[in-house]
């Protein structure tokens, strides 16, 4: 059965290197001189208030957003306008969205097999086996023949995770994967993500789930106004924040969690 790429298989420990990244939306300077390097197998949680540029940052990593200045190197490939490089990077980097974005005109199984068959040129039979393997891993093999519209939000997000895994990515990006879910469904998705983290996957996760950040993250990055304000291991980040801005953010989130 397929397994994930062993994180220690190649020489360089850094799988993503971002240096002096700048990006503008029109006149608006959305990312300001970002420098960030991610190790293989590292779990990075990016948090911050809305509009801080955290989503834009991870969307730059698979070129859903185009950056204007600076350098992004993913697994040794630099992201430029070269379409070939973009396609190469996108095949190595899986992405989860807030709205799941499953293909609604296909069954769950077809959603999972389509990309391996057409992009990786895998025989259909093999792709089906792979799909069922990952559906079992996210604990919903019984949904294979359902359409996405017939699944709950939590189930759809788990299908989306399985769809990414079928492409055997080296890195997974999570763009607020639980923000559109009902409270009762958040846990089932987080459980799958924790399981994934334990398997050694490199993960970059934009989320407001501070509990997840505390238990899973190797490093927490706090962004505001398009800048990285603070980065630290979770223990120090939550208990001894360095920046005033971080303290304010944490106090608001935590008071919310208690009231919530």
């Amino acid at each position: 059965m397929p397994t994930h790429t062993d994180p220690s298989s190649t020489d360089s420990p850094k799988i993503i290197v971002i240096s002096h990244l700048n990006k503008w939306f029109g006149e608006f300077h959305v990312l300001k001189d970002i420098n960030l390097a991610v190790d293989k197998g590292e779990k990075l949680v990016i948090c911050g208030p809305s509009g801080s540029g955290k989503s834009t940052l991870i969307r730059c990593i698979n070129r859903l957003e185009k950056h204007q200045q600076g350098q992004i190197i993913v697994d040794g490939i630099e992201l430029t306008n070269d379409v070939k490089h973009i396609d190469q990077v996108r095949r190595e980097v899986g992405m989860l969205f807030q709205n799941f974005n499953l293909f609604p005109h296909m069954t769950v199984l077809e959603n999972l097999t389509l990309s391996p068959v057409w992009i990786r040129k895998m025989p259909l039979k093999e792709a089906r086996e792979l799909a069922f393997h990952y559906l079992e891993r996210v604990k919903i093999p019984e949904l294979a023949d359902k359409y996405p519209g017939q699944c709950s939000g939590g189930q759809q997000q788990r299908v989306a995770i399985a769809r990414c895994l079928c492409m055997n990515p080296k890195v997974m990006l999570f763009d607020e994967p639980t923000s559109a879910l009902d409270p009762e469904m958040i846990k089932e998705v987080l459980d799958v993500m924790i399981d994934l983290a334990n398997s050694g996957m490199t993960m970059l996760c934009v989320t407001h789930e501070m509990g997840f950040a505390r238990t899973v993250a190797d490093r927490v990055v706090f962004m505001d106004g398009g800048e990285i304000v603070e980065e630290n291991d979770p223990e120090n980040f939550f208990n001894h924040p360095q920046s005033e801005r971080t303290v304010l953010f944490l106090s608001q989130i935590i008071s919310h969690e208690f009231k919530g």
């Binding site: 992405m95 969205f97 974005n101 293909f103 992009i119």
Partner: peptide, 24 residues
Amino acid sequence: GQYEAAQALGWSYWKMMGLIILPQ
């Protein structure tokens, strides 16, 4: 999001249009 999901999975323009966007 449909375009983004397809692009994020590594689909090229014509394949994405033919198999994901146009059928819908």
